[in-house]
Amino acid sequence: MKAKIVLKSLMVVALLSVGSFANDPGNLTKPSAKVQSMIDKFELEMVDFDYAKAKVAKGTRDGAKAVFVDARPNKKYKVGTIPSSINIPDTDYDKYVGQLKDTPKDKEILVFCGGWKCGKSPKVANMLKKDGFKNVKLYQAGEPEWVKKSYLEVDLAVIKAAQANNSAVLIDARPYAKYLQETIPGAISIPDTKVEELKGRFPVNHIEKVITFCGGYKCVKSHVVAKKLISMGYSNVKVFAGGVPEWKKAGLATTKSASKVKVDSKPKKPEFSKNGAKIGVDEGSIDGEWLYALIKEDKVPSYIQIVDVTSADEFKAGHLKGAINITAENFSAKELVAKFPKDKTIVFNCTAGGRSMDAWTKLNEAGVDVSEIFYFDANIDCKGNDCKIEVNEPLE
């Protein structure tokens, strides 16, 4: 009898554990209730990683089998997106949708954003449907899932910063003769046709950041090398799809022109705000690692007020300790500022950084003094006040 009771108890514990795991926001594998209601309302079909990967195909914009649309803010798109994607932020739809003016209305379009809790992708998908596009689907797991399983495409600003700071291995995937003619200074040559022969040149450390590039947006060679790196277990692989042509177009030095190009000299930004908040590299951002360390140690200064800009339901499910909730998208810039506590440094946060960035941008574009207003660029999953935080990489 005792054995049966013990076995039954163990089964109950196991079931509770499974249920707990399934409900853990850090392991979310389906849309949040709010996002699901939007998907249902707009009658949208979802696809998974394998489907999206097959549609990315060669990774180039000409070679992809569907149009990928990143619905996140432009800065998030520049930091890293699914290869071949174009950017149509939900908050700037009219400004960016012109990129699809020559796209047939029956062309398959896959929209994504910052993961299962992100409502930007269903919003943009619905706007596209209203504009007459008939084959619009969601890859709702989005960039957070993709980056764990594959490589990202990055903007010029990312490789420029990596080259200036010596913070990544740069790989020119073009033929060696092209490399010798002209390349990005500091890059090594691993042509896509010589990968097996030269793979010993790849970094020993499999978490080292690697950026591949070749002859521009139509060139598949950088994608071939990136895929090989992923297959070998490298976890931080990027492709600079613009390649050498975009680098030169920006007037940046190459091995051929280095002596002729002047180095940009930017004025040095202050390290801290007047109240004492450490300013991040990207405009409007708080230093993410600095704030994260304070949150972990429960030592967030009293002059900082964290403002969670998500919906009331999301905030109720979990939020950073000490945060207040103001759903920023529901208010004008003037209304939003009126809700802030006086004489505080305001730090916006959300679940993936997109909505907090939107809130800051709204205020900045309205001419509000944002010298003590910042956004926290991080992926944040909270259950109550128990939060898993991953600080996002800055653009520059």
Rank of each mutant, 00 (worst) to 15 (best):
S17N: 07
L252R: 07
I346K: 03
K227E: 15
E289A: 07
N275Q: 10
L7C: 07
A125N: 04
C350L: 08
G26A: 13
N23E: 12
T29W: 11
V169W: 01
I171P: 12
A52D: 13
P83D: 07
N166K: 13
I286H: 00
Q99M: 10
S231V: 10
K209Q: 15
A168Y: 00
S85D: 04
F272D: 09
K278L: 07
G115S: 09
A333Q: 04
E43I: 02
M1A: 11
K105M: 11
A14W: 05
Q36P: 11
V47F: 05
K34G: 07
N385D: 11
C118E: 08
K249Y: 07
V224A: 04
K134P: 09
D102N: 12
N379D: 13
N205S: 06
I5Q: 14
K238G: 13
A33Y: 06
L156Y: 09
A162R: 12
L44R: 02
G59Y: 04
N275V: 07
E365K: 15
D40C: 09
M127L: 13
V47E: 10
C113W: 10
K268S: 09
K339T: 05
V337C: 03
G354K: 05
S285R: 07
D131Q: 05
K41F: 03
G114H: 10
L10K: 02
Y179H: 00
E208W: 09
V225W: 10
L15N: 10
D50P: 02
M11A: 13
K199M: 03
E297I: 03
V368T: 13
I211Q: 02
Y77S: 00
R355T: 14
V210P: 12
V281N: 12
F348W: 00
